[in-house]
Design a protein around this nucleic acid. Structure first.
Lengths: 367, 367
DNA sequence: CTGAAAGCGCTTACAG
DNA sequence: CTGAAAGCGCTTACAG
């Protein structure tokens, strides 16, 4: 059932029409090597009249470069990855690179298959958000084969790959510190806190020394919990474990349930810190359902609140991650490696922006 | 400054190690042609031990297929395109296809360059949201060269390419009809209505016969205006041109200004129909700023409201486009063509879903 | 069932 | 400055 595909014109036909060798035609059309003005024009005219388009496959096969970057995102439909992807795409386009995009849904097996596909397609470099920090050593073979890898949002320990992350710990710490400064003493936290090699929340809370934990080795959600703890500790305040809720996955519905349960407790929290973007909607829903006033009854702070909160609820403190910039930085890094830049792995840590638009006004200056 | 890239193992080395010809090794590894059980194992073992990965470039060069689909979206960061892209990606992945993604930002020149890039990369098919319906004939040469094209969201007249769109006209018509049935007589409309070959809003409104306009030839925004008009006409109601606002671009800020102006007019509208997704936030912002109650002071209906409205404002009627399905359908269509399916261009028109969650309760059953 | 040879469409040394 | 030849890593007829 194979269709007869229109055969495309090749450089051979262009060369023949222009009366030169394919080597010369290639030099003109590919923009490498010398060619006299006279021949240039002839070849260009021939290419034009035949509607010639170079075959990037053939070129890539011989040059060993495809001018393509592979991206393994969690889910390009989520605002988080969509913004990162846009940043990557902008830099790629400006350098004439293409982008092959895949979703892992944070499933390790899927990530691996995606990387396999991309490597076979001979991408010049790879940008990945590793879905399982413990199993990601397989990336070493990719790097060893000459394909540079840049990690985004998460960092695999001891992997010789560049990385771009956000300083989640400090962002959470600053945010919670300012809630404390504004007078809050019972600050609840709603977070994913799913994958972890540091045990459960309780044992994490029980640790005597936080400084012993290098934040970079944690998933962002746990980094934020660390920041939450640091802020309390620095203020000399105790942490009530009942106020830290592990939702367990990026689910607005689950976040809603936890929030309702949380706000029904006595004494109720006076502030709520939502540590993962997609949960904000669930938290908001719970607050609406309980008919609570913001910030009268409860103060809210959210990581990665969606843009809409700005419009709908002026009374919310938001931690905004520089997602576009994260993508751009990752693309720049991978392009630098592709360009031959050597040296030890770079680890870029971008600051998050605390954006204040509610009762806790004092936050604005403080940050 | 060229790095010494680790040279990858080729099929030649695998063949040598297995003690067979490259042709035989290829048959085993590529899964085509015959091979004895004995040899199969030897080759597989050799490939395994050498860490062999097939080079898709070489394969593509010879087979003429890259197992890759090219996508030209407006902006993958917007929820609209992000959802479509996800649908495409799901189907592509299930068929073992890769996806090369680009943004046009609805700029024609950029779209063209993107298509050029994708064609040179030898994608097997193309999914495009044409940014300028009048200039999109250039796609003909792409199709003629054997690369099938599927259009999304918009349809270029007389282009022999499949298309997947949403029935915007009927969705808008139903929505407005139900607002009318709920008693509204002054229904305002906020819409993009930028690009057009049908003149300005006023002349569009003045047309005596709407049926003369084939909706498919219009940009979605204009199709929705058509639906708005049809609903009024069918109810025997006049349209007040002052209630139809052309925002001119996908801008929440501009939408906010128009909405404030609109709601300050006397007599004020009792309902507001926002015809383009990204403007909803601006409209909401205006409603908040004016301290209006929904749906007490004003009823709202939005095309493509973001998911959040469900959580934040139960009092809003939403028209939900099946974006994931649009992407999936487009991917299926293009894959069918790649598979050799011939026949006249397919034009899929998907229905939008009217989602009711406010005062205009009667809508729920009616749809 | 297996292998030698040709070739996909380009680029890359190497002569001239 | 230009061309003949080789070759990138595979697959595809074609013999055997």
């Amino acid at each position: 059932m194979a269709e007869k595909r229109a055969k495309k014109t090749t450089i051979i036909e262009v060369a023949r029409l222009a009366g030169v060798s394919t080597a010369t035609a290639g030099r003109v059309l590919g923009g490498y090597g010398y060619a006299s003005q006279d021949i240039r024009e002839k070849v260009r005219a021939a290419a034009e009249s035949l509607g010639y388009r170079p075959n990037a496959l053939a070129r890539g096969l011989i040059t060993g470069q495809t001018q393509t970057i592979g991206v393994v995102a969690g889910d390009v439909e989520s605002p988080f990855y969509a913004s990162i992807l846009r940043g990557i795409a902008d830099v790629a386009r400006s350098k004439g690179f293409g982008l092959v995009v895949t979703n892992s849904d944070e499933i390790f097996q899927r990530e691996r298959e995606a990387v396999e596909l991309l490597v076979e397609k001979q991408v010049d470099g790879l940008i990945v958000t590793p879905s399982d920090l413990a199993s990601a050593r397989y990336l070493e073979s990719v790097i060893a084969s000459g394909c540079p890898v840049v990690q985004i949002d998460r960092v695999v320990q001891e992997l010789a790959a560049d990385a771009v992350t956000v300083d989640s710990t400090n962002a959470a710490r600053n945010c919670v510190a300012h809630l404390i400064r504004a007078g809050h003493r019972r600050i609840a936290m709603i977070a994913e806190l799913e994958r972890s090699d540091v045990g459960d929340v309780r044992s994490f809370l029980d640790r005597t020394s936080f400084s012993a934990t290098p934040p970079v080795s944690l998933y962002p959600s746990w980094q934020r919990l660390l920041g939450y703890l640091q802020a309390h500790r620095e203020a000399g305040l105790p942490v009530d474990p009942a106020l830290v809720r592990r939702v367990g996955s990026y689910s607005a519905v689950a976040a809603k349930e936890e929030t309702i349960d949380l706000l029904s407790g006595r004494p109720a929290p006076t502030a709520l810190f939502t540590a993962d973007g997609l949960m904000s909607a669930g938290v908001m829903d719970a607050v609406s359902a309980l008919r609570l006033d913001i910030p009268g009854d409860i103060s809210l702070a959210c990581f990665d609140d969606l843009d809409w909160m700005r419009f709908v609820r002026p009374g919310i403190t938001a931690i905004e991650q520089p997602l576009n910039e994260m993508g751009r930085a990752a693309a720049r890094l991978v392009l630098a490696r592709i360009g031959g830049e050597s040296g030890p792995p770079q680890h870029l840590v971008l600051p998050a922006r605390l954006s204040l638009r509610n009762s806790v006004r004092e936050l604005a200056e403080a940050v």
